[in-house]
Amino acid sequence: MRSRALSAALMAAGRRKRFGSAEAVQARVARSARRPASHLPPRSLGKVAEVSRTFVGAWPVYDVSPRGTEPAAQVLYIHGGGYINELVRPHWSLIRTLVTRAQARCVVPAYILAPRGTADRTVPVATDLLSGLIASGGAGGTVLLGDSAGAGLALAAAQRLRDRTGAQPSRIVLISPWLDLTVSHPDQAAIEPADPMLARPGLVEAGRLYAGTLAADDPLVSPLHGSFAGLAPLTVFTGTRDVLTTDSRELLRRAVADGTDVDFHEAPGLPHGYPLLPVPEGREARDRIVDLIRTAADH
């Protein structure tokens, strides 16, 4: 009941208007250009974790580690937001959970947003970050985690690293992944009216900005169109009230066909990004992610 009430509240509040039209996305990007949003972590995070920041090229990259103890594992976390929005409080809340409960070191890039940050520029930097973490800490203790657009960027980086060196993290965890920026699956029209957060017209425009000069179905932009062979085991969370759940279902079909293991969780009646939300199913998903990271630390 609480989960259904939250979905209804999101619908009533008009959260989907951020992606309701191409014009809404363009207005959002214009506002961000005039007054960039902050990606700084909340001050309260510093009470339970060691927080530092470095730069990888033009990217600010936050390093968040358990206070007073050695990390048991490391996580590269790539945030969502349609490639046009910065890190926000629910992202930082998830990071806090991973640091305090899984005793994980979290490396969190505040990547350059579209339209300045396009796939041809963004995926190589994310790939370098992933490669560096695996090299420094060992693949067995490294988990790649992303939500929404960040999950798409994470998967594209894993595919590129596989093609470059064959290296992979111990596991890839994708939360409500946006993997096909063409937003063209025939089942999406039936799902969209029940989605309280996302709408196809705005997603298509955000995808166009991120694609830059590449085609929307280029695997660098839309990793659903890339190969899943040779990737690390995948864990995927999606909800049936998410217009992008078709991407997760297609991932399951294609990854299994390519011989890649998939731990798949589809939650009935839940919206986009539900593992980040304060609902019982969200807590269960976070518990699962914590367990996966602990397992990675044991290998």
Rank of each mutant, 00 (worst) to 15 (best):
L94F: 15
P169A: 04
L292T: 10
D218Q: 02
D180G: 04
L45S: 04
G230P: 03
A297W: 07
I175E: 06
V107G: 01
D298A: 15
H185E: 11
V88Q: 14
A72K: 14
A157C: 01
D263M: 05
A285I: 08
S248G: 14
F19V: 07
I95Q: 01
L174Q: 07
A285W: 08
R34Y: 03
G273W: 00
T118Y: 00
R116Y: 11
H39R: 11
D258F: 08
S32A: 15
A156T: 04
R253C: 03
D187H: 06
A296F: 09
T142N: 08
E281D: 12
L161P: 03
Y274G: 00
T165D: 10
Y83N: 10
P42L: 11
A257H: 10
L144W: 03
H265W: 11
V256C: 09
D263I: 08
W178F: 13
R121E: 14
T122P: 03
L40C: 08
G166N: 04
L45I: 14
T260S: 06
T118N: 08
S38G: 03
L87V: 15
L153F: 00
L203F: 06
G259E: 06
P71A: 02
S65Y: 04
Y83K: 08
A8G: 09
R254K: 14
A114L: 08
D263L: 02
R288W: 12
R16L: 11
L251Y: 06
A37Q: 13
A58W: 02
H91Q: 06
A285Y: 05
N85W: 09
S222P: 10
D242V: 01
G132M: 06
R294E: 13
A24D: 15
G140V: 09
S248W: 11
V75Q: 07
V221R: 01
L129V: 10
I78M: 08
P36I: 04
R121W: 10
F237V: 04
L161G: 00
I175G: 01
L174F: 08
V48T: 15
S32K: 14
L251R: 06
P42N: 07
L220W: 01
E284V: 10
P109A: 07
A285K: 07
E86W: 05
A139K: 14
I84F: 03
L209E: 05
G141T: 12
L145M: 13
R288H: 15
A229C: 05
D120N: 14
R200D: 07
D261W: 11
P233M: 00
A30I: 09
W92P: 12
V88D: 13
A154S: 15
L214P: 02
L113T: 07
T69E: 15
N85S: 14
P177F: 12
G150A: 02
H79N: 02
I134G: 03
G137Q: 13
V51I: 14
G239V: 00
S44I: 12
G68H: 10
H185I: 08
L220K: 09
D128T: 15
R160M: 11
